[in-house]
Amino acid sequence: MPWFLYMLECADGSVYTGIAIDVAARFAQHASGTGARYTRSRKPVQVLAQFEFADRARASSAEYWVKRLTPREKRALAAGVRTLESVLPPPPPPPPETAAEAAPETAAPE
């Protein structure tokens, strides 16, 4: 089941970032005052952007990095001026090959 990172514009001009399975339902919770404490006093106005991830762990990791952006950087990300890949750390390099994997197979003499 996919998870989404979403960014909301709030009435005070701030940008809230969160994760959810259903962004529309989560926005409704924020709008009704039953979402995060942050949005209870800053009333969300609209969903600025949402990004799909394969699982909760990846969405949560992306949320960690996006929350560290300035409001201007978050708006650039939401507008497509910045890519999500430019915000996230690069993926770890693949593990080095072991000697057994690197050696070509040889045929036994007949």
Rank of each mutant, 00 (worst) to 15 (best):
T70V: 12
G80E: 02
D55L: 10
P94C: 12
E52S: 00
V47I: 03
L48S: 02
A57Y: 11
K74W: 08
E52R: 00
W65S: 06
A79C: 03
A57E: 13
R40G: 05
L48I: 00
Q50E: 14
T34H: 05
A62H: 01
R40I: 02
A76M: 06
A76Y: 06
L77V: 04
P44F: 02
Y38D: 02
P89E: 07
A76I: 05
A76C: 09
F51Q: 01
R75I: 14
A57R: 10
L69C: 13
T83Q: 10
E73N: 14
F51P: 01
Y64I: 12
T39C: 14
P95K: 14
R42I: 02
R56W: 08
R82S: 13
L88M: 10
A36L: 08
P94K: 11
G80I: 01
S60L: 07
L88N: 02
S41Y: 10
E52P: 01
K67V: 05
F53W: 02
R40P: 01
A36H: 12
W65C: 05
F53E: 00
R72Q: 14
R37M: 03
P96L: 12
T34F: 06
E97D: 13
Y64K: 09
T70R: 09
P94D: 14
P96S: 12
R72P: 05
F53P: 01
A57D: 09
R72E: 15
Y38M: 07
V47W: 03
K67F: 09
A36Q: 05
P89I: 09
P92W: 14
L88V: 05
D55H: 13
T70Q: 07
T39S: 09
V66C: 04
S41N: 12
A59T: 00
Y64T: 10
A79F: 01
P92K: 13
T83R: 10
A78Y: 06
F53K: 00
R56S: 10
A76K: 06
R68Q: 11
P95E: 15
P92T: 15
P92Y: 15
V66D: 01
A78L: 11
P93E: 08
K74D: 07
Y64L: 10
Q50G: 10
G35Y: 13
S60Q: 08
F51K: 04
P90I: 06
L69W: 14
P92N: 14
W65P: 00
A76H: 05
L88T: 03
P91I: 15
R58T: 01
R75L: 14
P89L: 09
W65Q: 04
L48G: 00
E63H: 04
P93V: 08
E85R: 00
T98Q: 08
T34M: 09
R42P: 00
P71I: 13
K67P: 04
T98N: 13
R37S: 08
A62R: 01
E73K: 12
V45K: 11
P91Q: 14
D55Y: 10
T83M: 09
R68Y: 05
V45N: 11
T98D: 12
E97C: 11
E52D: 02
E63Y: 00
P44A: 04
P96V: 15
T34K: 08
V87L: 09
T70K: 11
E73A: 15
R58F: 03
R42D: 02
D55E: 15
R37C: 01
P90C: 11
S86F: 07
G35I: 15
R40D: 02
R37L: 01
V87P: 06
R40W: 09
V81L: 09
